[in-house]
Amino acid sequence: MTIAWRSPLGLVLLLLCALTFAYLLLPILVVVVAPFGATGYLAFPPQGWTLKWYAAAVSDTRYLAALLVSLRIALASAVIACVIGIAAAYALTRYDFLGRRLLEAIFLSPLILPTLVLAVGLTLFFTRTGLLQGPWRLIAAHVIICIPYVLRVSLPVLRRFDRALEEAARNLGASPFAAFFLVVLPVVRPGIVAGTVLAFITSFDEVVLALFLAEPGAPTLPVTIYSAVQLGFEPSVAAISGLLVLATFAVMLLYHLLSAFRRQRD
């Protein structure tokens, strides 16, 4: 390392770094730990010890129903965004034509556009045209914000892909179609998986579009939590949030252990 960490400058840097992690993780820790408190309101650090709020959260059918809605919508959005996005990403890296960069910029632009603006536009659009019904309105909206994530992850992987591999497959008798499925897809699979996982999480966590476009009788989990938090400060809301955090953490850990394991095996 260039800077001696024990020098005054190094210590200041390390201190700020420690502060950052405390700052980043504190509110997340709060939602996991606070519901263990025995008081009837949320406090941090918790006082007393009980599992009652976590039990209440798990047995609350509202949350379970919302969780299922969220999972369904996230799954549909991620799969659709992945298929559409990979096709476009492949074409963006494979063909060079006038306006390619502009097209790529347009495809990526929902990433920086305020979701709220997107939500207002889409609500007006769906009300006026009557297009799509039920969960599909929200799925369409989520596909729009998921595709940029799929592209962000898969474009670099596809750009790094050695075109000679595809040509080798063609040379050995594979049609363009077969070459894509037998060689391109398996080689870039880690990028596709990562992009799809990212798309799933984006849709699952998203609240603004869901507030505007979810079916009235079937809110997603973030919408349910949002409404519950606005109404009151029930410890069971914190408990369901805490469960969500723990589940996310478990998924992240699993994903990284799996990819580390795969790297080791190779």
Binding site: F21, I28, V30, V31, F44, V245, M252
Partner: peptide, 23 residues
């Protein structure tokens, strides 16, 4: 630690804001 930095991004903004409200 870098992984830990990305973790908050995976948690819904609603949940993170809720944590702050308690504090």
């Amino acid at each position: 630690l870098l992984l830990l930095t990305t973790f908050p991004l995976l948690v819904s903004a609603v949940v993170r804001s809720f944590g702050w409200m308690v504090l």
